[in-house]
Design a protein around this nucleic acid. Structure first.
Length: 409
RNA sequence: GUGCCCCUAGCUCAAUUGGCAGAGCACUGGUCUGUGGCACCAGUGGUUACGGGUUCGAGCCCCGUGGGGCACC
């Protein structure tokens, strides 16, 4: 089949193993990740269920879509309903009746996105709840404890993320704290494994902002650490796509091939194809679910707004090649009606379609890697797929940033 | 029948002393990347009920017509 096989050793702990098969096309890899609650085939996309639910879907929907693992969020769940309650109910998986693996984000991203409301120190981060203003502290040790209470299959290290516009000093400080915290994340995690028998795995995160040298430095730092997987943080935070690709390539160059690489917060269909080509194994992103709730659905030709006037009376599915429940059952005209009427079913049907669309891309990538046809598959996808206008997106981001800054005064 | 009030974008309403006719919703297009998001960005849309008059200038003042509302006969 023209496959170059490479199998790395088990990466600790015993509950987690990873091996990958390198395709002959560039750096794309197909692999398998064993976790306490199941096996994840890579490349993998993790739907985001921040508050222990993928918005508008239930676990049956997720299974039908082909989701393998779901992401939940430490920051949100610690505030509501609280880690003690979730622990009483047997962890996030059992609480939400998703019997597959879950990954929990550490809250590091919220330190970034809630920037108005937090204070960083060497010890950790202090922030005020967006729900009731109450004060909370998050440290590497606490983040690990919470994620163990959540019963996470994969815990994420607490890191510090900065946006694209951040100053040189902010970028340096974020990396410094991320590095300082990583050994503490690991020590706390290992202590929990030993004391409570927590069966999950820990992924570390590298940062580095948008300086190539720092990106390499941070990736090398992470590469030497005793973690089960390596996450790339601080990308897809407002930078142009080429900048992200450049930073990603440098980073991957330094990461060990024997561990899964997780690109956090990505992405759009074209980003997934491009990042897999560079050697990424795992992704999560709110984009497919968020845009679905605004009536934007994916097709092989690009994203369309299903509520647009031109679809008012269109019969037939969103995408004739799609096998999802929505496409097999409903016309575009009906979806158009649901979005115009703001009916709840619209959110669910569009979310099902978008997640299935992404999952089918992921499956196509894996299949093409294993049959040594990834480069062709990627080229034909990208040739047909019209991606969203990045100039418009950047323009709007800038307007939003200015408005927010003005409000702050 | 008499008196008073009202008529401005598709809808609900602003418009300072007479001085560049606006907003929200709706409509049209777009954006969203480890989810403080049912959000955001932009755009179309006007003979200011109609006809006269005063004025450099009228949505605004005056006269008439039409339509609607309230009160009293």
């Amino acid at each position: 089949l023209g496959i170059i096989g490479s199998m790395s050793d088990l990466v600790s702990p015993a509950s987690l193993s990873f091996f990958s098969v390198d395709g002959i096309d560039g750096h794309a890899r197909a692999g398998q990740l064993r976790l306490p609650r199941g096996v994840v085939l890579t490349p993998a996309f993790m739907p985001v269920g921040t508050q222990a639910t993928v918005k508008s879907l239930d676990p049956n929907d997720l299974r039908t879509i082909g989701a393998q693992i779901v992401l939940a969020n430490t920051y949100h769940l610690m505030l509501r309903p609280g880690a003690e309650l979730i622990e009483q109910f047997g962890g996030v998986s059992h609480f939400m009746r998703w019997d597959g693996p879950i990954l929990t984000d550490s809250g590091g991203f919220q330190v970034f996105s809630l920037a108005d409301n937090r204070r960083l120190s060497d010890a950790g981060v202090t922030f005020h709840s967006h729900l009731d203003g109450s004060r909370h502290e998050l440290s590497p040790e606490r983040a690990m404890g919470l994620q163990a209470q959540f019963g996470s299959d994969i815990s994420m290290a607490l890191d510090v993320c900065v946006g694209y516009g951040a100053s040189e000093q902010e970028q340096i400080d974020a990396m410094r704290l991320t590095h300082a915290w990583l050994p503490r994340n690991i020590a706390a995690f290992e202590r929990l494994v030993e004391e409570t028998g927590h069966p999950g795995a820990l992924f570390g995160i590298c940062q580095g902002g948008f300086d190539g040298g720092r990106r390499r430095e941070s990736a090398r730092f992470l590469a030497d650490m005793e973690v089960s997987g390596c996450a790339i943080g601080g990308l897809s935070v407002g930078e142009p796509k080429q900048v992200m690709a450049d930073m990603l390539e440098l980073t991957l160059d330094e990461l060990p091939p024997g561990k899964p690489r997780y690109l956090m917060g990505v992405g759009s269909p074209e980003d997934l194809w491009n990042a897999v080509a560079l050697g990424v194994d795992m992704f999560d992103c709110v984009l497919p679910t968020r845009v679905a709730r605004r009536g934007a659905v994916y097709t092989p030709a690009g994203r369309i707004s299903v509520g647009a006037a031109r679809y008012r009376s269109l019969d037939g599915p969103i995408d004739a090649t799609c096998d999802c429940y929505t496409c097999r059952t409903f016309s575009v005209a009906y979806l158009n009606h649901l979005f115009r009427a703001k009916e709840l079913l619209g959110y669910r049907l569009a979310t099902i379609h978008n997640l299935r669309f992404i999952q089918r891309q992921i499956e196509a990538m894996r299949e093409s890697i294993l049959t040594a046809s990834f480069a062709n598959a990627r080229a034909s996808f990208l040739a047909a797929y019209q991606s969203a206008d990045q100039d418009v997106a950047a323009d709007q981001r800038e307007k939003f940033r200015q408005r927010r800054a003005a409000r702050r005064w």
